[in-house]
């Protein structure tokens, strides 16, 4: 999902109608149904079926097993840790993302392109590598390891490491969402605000923020989904200590490796539901953003 953060502004419907109503761009019905059939069956096999399978497997041994698996102390502790990591990572990335997007969209400075590349780094690097970086820096044999153990600070195989890894892998979402939006909006409204006597904070709060709020919301939703679902980087730094450093995805893996399939799928269904909620929220935000964008289009015409 990492690359697909571009927001769909316009509904697909009106664009498609334009192609279909014109003889020049209309395809034969055969081509049309082959393409539709292909994409729908791919969607069903690779996306819908796993989702159904998770729910079916989770409930195979009945509601009782399902609830037991969810209320297991280790599972609850995994839920708590996952929520904690998201609760820290999301606000941090909200602030950093807005700051980075602001810097890139509104200022000219040396190293701007380098910063853009850096923002994309978590997308381009494997999450496992991301985890390893933290182990190399903060681990017992790492650069800062001896100093940290001297001062009794635990980062790797502890909660701080998990939070760090989560922050790292979710970093691009907010910034990537906001940069094109802020670049497109330009700085005229901010200039107008300053001429009217607003100070920097007032300009940000009353003019900039309202203009980017839907893009920001979208970035936050994606950040949250990734923060809760992250496996690779967190797996490397976590140490898999049950009831202490296991997040939900790690807990699923442990249960699965122990052949507790029903329990594994029960916990996995929580993550699946999170995905559904995210999808619903995302659609709603997209809808609102598209409405706001259409208004803006009228504004420009």
């Amino acid at each position: 999902m990492s690359g697909a953060v571009a927001m769909q502004w316009s509904g697909a419907g009106d664009g498609a109608a334009r192609f279909e109503s014109k003889a020049a761009t209309r395809e034969t019905p055969l081509v049309k149904w082959i393409i539709i059939g292909l994409s729908l069956s791919f969607f069903a096999v690779f996306l819908l079926m796993p989702l159904v399978a998770v729910l079916v497997e989770a409930l195979r041994k009945g509601w009782e097993t399902y609830l037991t698996a969810l209320l297991d102390p280790d599972a609850l502790s995994a839920v708590r840790l996952t929520l904690l990591a998201a609760l820290i990572a999301v606000p941090l990335n909200l602030v950093f993302g807005v700051a980075a997007a602001w810097a890139i969209a509104k200022f000219e400075f040396r190293g701007k392109h380098f910063l853009i590349t850096l923002i994309d780094l978590p997308f381009s690097v494997s999450p496992v590598i991301a985890g390893l970086i933290y182990v190399l820096v903060f681990g017992a044999q790492g650069w800062l390891g001896p100093w940290l153990s001297e001062h009794d600070v635990k980062i790797i195989f502890a909660v701080p490491g998990i939070v760090l890894a989560t922050v790292f892998v979710t970093f691009p979402f907010v910034a990537r969402e906001l940069i094109p939006l802020m670049e497109a909006q330009g700085k005229e409204e901010e200039e107008a605000a300053v001429v009217l006597g607003a100070n920097g904070w007032q300009t940000f709060w009353h003019v900039t923020l309202p203009n980017i709020k839907w893009g920001l919301m979208y970035g936050v939703i994606l950040t949250n989904a990734r923060a809760m679902g992250e496996f690779g980087a967190v797996s490397v730094v976590s140490g898999h200590i049950r009831g202490e450093t296991n997040t939900l995805p790690l807990h699923v893996e442990i249960l699965y490796n122990e052949y507790q399939f029903a329990a594994a799928f029960a916990v996995a269904s929580l993550l699946a539901m999170l995905a559904l909620v995210t999808l619903g929220l995302k659609t709603w935000v997209e809808h609102r953003a598209a409405a706001a964008h259409n208004e803006k289009q009228d504004d420009a015409s």
């Binding site: 005229e188 001429v195 607003a198 100070n199 309202p210 504004d299």
Partner: peptide
Amino acid sequence: RERQVGFVFQHYALFRHMTVFDNVAFGMRM
């Protein structure tokens, strides 16, 4: 901010998320 000039932009630069009333009131409220 302190020059007390009124500036009208070529593309108006009205605050798009505010009503006409709030747009005009902006300078006084700030």
